[in-house]
Design a protein around this nucleic acid. Structure first.
Lengths: 199, 199
DNA sequence: GTCTATAGGCAGATAGAC
DNA sequence: GTCTATCTGCCTATAGAC
């Protein structure tokens, strides 16, 4: 009865999402984040993923298609993370978890910026469907943040509060990345924590 | 006595900064901003500046050198703008002018993002001296904002307040650009105006 | 100082054998 | 499904006449 064992959906469909495809998306995620979309070559991605260059095109018909797959992966990962946080009984704790995630990642953010924000900024200068797709992760985070503020009884101000929280962290990340120091994230995160505590 | 006529310093030294050089920097500024550094070709810049491609290399030894010149131009323009605002007697009015500038530019910012922020984000993924130079415009704005808060008697909190104001506007600009709507800048600018009024 | 022509190299994408 | 070899085109940069 192996078909009843509790395995992850992705492992359950090896034919549709084989290991190579996953490795390519993972390598692309890492390299696009560290070097940017334009500067990253498919040859480099293939090397990191340990897949021959020509084989990349069996899984993705173009570099753009790989970019789109990367956005989908990001959406799935973020949804999983939010689902975990949704188990916290107090919406305040969910907001704290969000700010804390940024704080925990501050060194990485100082090195390479926000993976969603910098992807958005860069892909919005590309042609085709990439610009529109790139902002979807932001849209879903905004919507989730709104939910938390609404659950706290701040219905009318929920959209504004959600946007403010995301904007502050994005801006702090831009400065932290520009100057290569985590201090902007640390200062803004502390203020946001106080704000959440006082809601 | 034509040497006494009141002409601009740049027109006064045609040998050192001829028109073609200026046109190239202006075209590069515009195209790097709209399309990004990597995606913009020297051929396109040359066309927009109405300069033959081969002639570009008489003024700039490489694409990177053109990028560095662009940063210098940005620094000069920003200093001139701050010098004008420094004539306002009340530091609050100077801070208001800064926020108002962002608000006035919101449509352009929705289309292409912050010219300093997106340049920083993209150039920090390049090699060579560009990453370090790209953040200088931010550094000078931060320093100027700090001065204004100090002039208002908020000495100890001046660095934090300056960073917060810049971070909020940067973050609002990232969201405004990502979603193509000025509303995030409008909301955050309004709150910053209230904050300045109550200082 | 100016401009044409082109070198040189690299990156995205494809062909086609296995 | 996999992989090697390669095509095609573009982009930075240079050569060299004027």
């Amino acid at each position: 009865m192996s078909w009843l064992t509790n395995i992850s959906p992705l492992e359950a469909m090896p034919a549709k999402t084989p290991d190579k495809r996953r490795r390519l998306v993972n390598a692309a995620t890492k390299l696009f984040y560290q070097q940017g979309f334009s500067r990253t070559t498919l040859a480099h991605i293939a090397t990191v993923a340990d897949v021959p260059l020509g084989n990349v095109y069996y899984y993705f018909k173009s570099k753009e298609a790989l970019g789109l797959a990367l956005v989908e992966q990001r959406l799935a990962d973020d949804r999983a993370r939010r689902a975990r946080w949704d188990r916290l009984p107090d919406p305040k704790d969910r907001l704290v978890a969000f700010v804390q995630m940024t704080l925990d990642n501050r060194r990485r953010l100082a090195r390479s910026g926000c993976p969603i924000g910098s992807l958005c900024t860069e892909l919005h200068k590309e042609d085709g469907p990439l610009p529109a797709q790139a902002s979807r992760p932001f849209a879903e985070w905004l919507s989730w943040l709104e939910q938390q503020f609404r659950a706290l009884g701040h219905g009318g101000e929920a959209p504004g509060n959600a946007a403010h929280m995301l904007a502050v962290l994005q801006g702090a990340t831009v400065l932290t990345h520009s100057f290569g120091t985590p201090k902007y994230i640390e200062n803004e995160a502390r203020q946001l924590m106080d704000w959440i505590g006082g809601l």
